[in-house]
Amino acid sequence: MTITEASRRKKAAVVLFALAALIVITFIVSMNTGHMRLSPLDVLRTLIGLGTDKNELVLFEFRLPRIVISVLIGAGFALSGAILQSVSRNPLADPGLLGINSGANLMIVLYISFIHLDVTNSVLTRPVIAFIGSFAAAAVIYGLSFKRHHGVLPTRMVLAGVAIAQGINALILILTLRINPEEYQQIQVWMAGSISGTSWTYVLAFLPWFIVLVPFIVFKARVLNVMNLGDQLATGLGSPVGKDRLLLLAAAVGLAGACTAVGGGISFVGLIGPHLARRLVGPNHQQLIPASALAGGLIVMAADTISRNLGDFPTGLVVAVIGAPYFLYLLSKSR
């Protein structure tokens, strides 16, 4: 190992530790803030079983599951974005911008509007339904952006994704016009990226997807490094590029669909998280993958904490306020 490589790994370790520390600090602050403010002493007493019944209800039934799911879906969206950016070699790739989240939204709206289930009561089945929608949208986008002898063309992927997303959103709007006002309001709030009302059921519904897919993505980090060298060189080094690309895309789509199912339409996390991580630790995916997950979790948890203290409006709106200007900045810098 060269001195330069050792220095980079040391810097990456420091960055990962700093991001983890920021998550812990934000987690503690988030537990103390909200409509009902709890002092640090109240939180500590409640965590060790000495709090009042009211404090236990607020912390364990309302606040903690919401904080945990915000970290998990933030990490999931960021990992999905990191894979999409690497596989497509497109720095603007993001599950929200490419229409993958819209595919998940469409399937869930179809499921709810035709079966007439409450948004919150269908949480255990939503990740599977969302995955079907996300996979269908991703397959169409991949097919439109793929060109023989050239592979996936980054510009075509963005254009196809935007077009598919707009078409799906128009179809969702038409579908929501036929449902009753109560279901319509629930769907609109959920699609805006609201994670209010989250319970431990949401965490249990999402956790299997996270436990299965994240270790697979970490395991494939070295493959992503090889794929960044180009298809021809990667094939020459013995990497099954086509198979690995499809497996990684399936993992990205699965994570994005599951995140959308429990967190709604939170956009830009898959764009901001990987870009922030890349600036901090560099392009090596063995450091980029964990850094992206930590950055995404931190962004969504901080945004949710802000939204809870400013009127409890959808977390996705706070992320969009942060993400939209950053997307325009990246767009102005891209060639």
Rank of each mutant, 00 (worst) to 15 (best):
I115A: 15
S86K: 00
N90E: 13
I83V: 15
D94K: 07
L110R: 15
L97Q: 00
S80A: 15
H116G: 14
L72H: 08
D53W: 01
G99M: 05
L50P: 04
L117A: 12
L98N: 00
N90W: 05
A82S: 11
L110A: 14
I108C: 09
L59D: 01
I73F: 02
L106N: 04
G74M: 08
R89L: 11
V71R: 09
I112H: 08
R66H: 07
A93N: 02
A75Q: 07
Y111S: 15
A104K: 04
G96L: 12
G81E: 14
N105C: 11
L110K: 09
A75T: 00
I108M: 13
G76H: 07
E56H: 09
L72E: 01
V58M: 12
S88E: 14
V71Y: 04
S113Q: 14
T52S: 09
A75N: 01
G49A: 11
N90K: 11
G96F: 06
N105R: 01
F77M: 11
S86T: 14
K54Q: 13
R63M: 08
V71H: 05
A78S: 02
A93T: 01
R89H: 14
G74H: 07
S70N: 13
I73W: 07
S88D: 05
I108N: 04
Y111W: 10
S70W: 06
F62S: 05
P65Y: 04
G103H: 03
F114D: 14
G49T: 08
I48R: 15
L57S: 05
N101D: 06
Q85E: 09
F77W: 06
F114K: 11
L79F: 14
V71S: 03
G103W: 03
H116E: 11
M107W: 05
L106Q: 12
G81Q: 04
H116C: 10
S88T: 12
N90C: 13
V87M: 07
V71L: 15
L72K: 03
V87G: 03
I112Q: 03
I69G: 02
N101W: 09
P91N: 07
I69S: 08
